[in-house]
Design a protein around this nucleic acid. Structure first.
Lengths: 143, 143
DNA sequence: CTGAATCCGCCGTGATACTG
DNA sequence: CAGTATCACGGCGGATTCAG
């Protein structure tokens, strides 16, 4: 992805190529109103959060430690997640040309701030997850 | 979605049915470690944030106002987003049986707190988006 | 040990048309 | 006005295999 449409790691096709280019304009306007989308695009996906929090807790993490620390993740997705985070300047990747090879990952300062903010979101989740679950059950019963 | 697998609005098949059921256990462990995933699942998708912030700013919003206020959204996606948010107890939906029909949406208290926390994330995004973009450009050049 | 490359299934998303 | 129903597409995510 060398060009503009770098964000939107989500599922959407990002303006399906439909009609004229006007849609990109308004879409950009939405993004301007809400940079939150960019953060969430970055942090979305099943694994990014796990990587971030794990790295935040451990300071320095190696590839294999991620695999053990995030149960269920595949090599492929771990690599992709790591690369995306590195590309966004949230992780630094240091490779030691030893045998066997060794790679270390750390959070950048920006990512550390992000992790702190995310912890506030976690607080919200903890405080309201019961309410949310109850809402879901109630909703599913009546629909 | 009447049953258990309600969360995980993301793309993943949620433990592909591979081998034994042990994977669900560890996966559940991951969720326990990080309830953040649930919040993000709830807020992910291209439109949920827009709906949330718009409703936060307007107090009361009608269906058509969403369509006008969130450029590019389709009726279908607006409906789905609204329903999900309502199901999670973040939005209330009030239908007036008038002609023409009229439906009002408001944030619940929980969602208002969430919106505040999300604004902190927005702050982070604003403070670091330049850095992130620069990182991306640099990364794309060298790879 | 740390990845890269390939194949494939699933589901989110959008377009379009229909309804009360 | 406020949705619902149906179809099609594209990409994420996973499994597996190969490489340095």
């Amino acid at each position: 992805m060398p060009e503009v449409t770098t964000s939107n790691s989500g599922v959407g096709p990002d303006s399906t190529g439909v009609s004229d280019a006007g849609l990109d304009g308004v879409h950009e306007a939405v993004r301007h109103i809400c940079p939150l989308n960019e953060v969430l695009d970055r942090v979305s996906g099943k694994w990014a959060i796990g990587v971030l929090t794990l790295t935040g807790a451990e300071e320095v993490v190696r590839f294999t430690e991620f695999e053990r620390g995030i149960p269920g993740i595949s090599r492929r997705m771990l690599t992709l997640t790591l690369r995306n985070l590195e590309r966004d300047g949230l992780l630094t990747r240091t490779v030691y040309a030893t045998v066997p090879p060794r790679t270390e990952y750390r959070l950048t300062e920006a990512a550390q701030e992000l992790a702190q903010t995310l912890s506030l979101l976690t607080d919200w989740a903890k405080r309201h997850q019961a309410h949310v679950q109850a809402s879901r059950v109630a909703y599913d019963e009546t629909h």
